[in-house]
Computed example of a mutant assay.
Amino acid sequence: MKRLFLLAFSLLMFGVLSAQKTADIGIWGGVGTYTGDMTSVNYKSSLGPAAGAFVRYNFNPRYSLRGTVMVSDLDVIGSYESHPWEFGKMVTDVSAMFEFNFFRYIMGSKRHPITPYLLVGLGVSLYPYDYDPEMLAGVVPYLNTNSAPNLPSGYDKAYRENVVAANIPLGFGFKFNVGERLSVGMEGQIRKYLDDRLDNLDDPLKYYTATGENAGYWTTYNDALHNNDWTFHFGVHLSYLIYRGGKKCPAYDNIN
């Protein structure tokens, strides 16, 4: 009898846990900006639109995994040291983020309709990098009048390349149900970029040694982990429940 009870209890709990697995899709819209090597940014004039979409798999009322694609239009105005500097580019971020709900949260539930949450994950960013020695000449030391003639060949030519860089997204948000299948949320995200070319200032303090013991070597200060490029986004999102994890049980809200 005890074994039969344990088997029945296990099957019941399996059914409950299975019912907790859901999935939803959503859209995201807001604004974004940047901080990095630029020593001064006019943030009032440097907010650009951002939009995205995501799909989220909810393992249970606390934990979810979200795949997100976000596109940002960054037009940043400011200065580096005492020199005016600005850049504009489209940035596409593709991220996989783990989502932790502070409260038990179930889309469509009347007992658990609201929660703040945290995000952390890994992502990849795609954006152009513009190297323009004419613009950089008055900004970075390695292109000043004395140093530029001693640089290796190629540093006097402008070019553009497409960058694929890793990033680490972090976020905080607040979401709540507005119907049986719909929820709305407000969210802030920051991204640490593992590349220093977002602002077209690639390690601006580096310098090249043309003579002496270290001739032919660059002295650098930034690398993938140690650089200043971050983006900040704030927006709202709307999500729609597409998978309930099985047939909805009448006692679902009471159990959870």
Rank of each mutant, 00 (worst) to 15 (best):
N146M: 11
S109N: 10
Y129H: 05
D130G: 03
D93P: 01
S125C: 00
V124K: 04
E99Q: 14
R104N: 13
S153R: 08
F98Q: 07
H112C: 06
F174S: 12
A165N: 00
A166I: 07
Y159W: 04
F100H: 07
P128Q: 03
S125H: 02
N101M: 14
P128D: 13
K157F: 01
G173I: 13
R111P: 00
H112S: 09
I106K: 15
F174V: 14
F172K: 04
M107L: 10
F176Y: 12
N144M: 09
D93N: 14
L136K: 08
S147F: 11
G138I: 00
N101W: 05
P152E: 06
P113A: 13
G123N: 06
L170E: 03
G108L: 05
R111F: 03
R104W: 06
P116I: 15
T92V: 15
I168K: 01
M90D: 08
G171M: 14
R160L: 00
Y117G: 04
P152K: 06
L118I: 10
F103H: 07
V94D: 00
P169A: 10
Y129T: 00
Y117A: 10
F102S: 04
P141D: 13
Y105H: 13
L119S: 03
A158I: 05
G173A: 12
Y105N: 12
P113T: 08
L143D: 10
L143E: 07
P149H: 12
G123C: 09
N146Y: 14
Y105K: 12
P128C: 05
I168T: 07
L170A: 09
Y127N: 04
T92S: 15
L151D: 03
A166C: 02
N146T: 14
F98P: 07
F102T: 07
G154N: 06
V163P: 00
S109V: 02
N162S: 12
Y155D: 04
L122Y: 12
G123P: 05
D93T: 13
A166V: 09
N167A: 01
S147H: 13
V164E: 00
A96L: 15
R160Q: 13
T92C: 12
F102E: 03
G173Q: 06
T92A: 15
N150Y: 15
L170H: 04
Y159K: 02
I106T: 13
D93W: 03
D93Y: 03
G154E: 06
L126T: 08
F98H: 07
I106R: 15
G108A: 10
Y117H: 11
A96D: 03
N146D: 13
Y127S: 03
G154C: 05
E134H: 10
K175N: 11
Y142C: 02
D156L: 08
T145Q: 10
Y127R: 01
A148V: 06
K110H: 12
S125R: 01
G121M: 07
Y142F: 15
E99I: 12
G121N: 11
G138R: 11
E134S: 13
L151H: 06
Y155C: 05
F172D: 02
P116A: 15
F176N: 10
K110G: 14
L118Q: 02
K175R: 14
G121P: 07
F102V: 14
G121F: 06
Y129Q: 00
M90K: 14
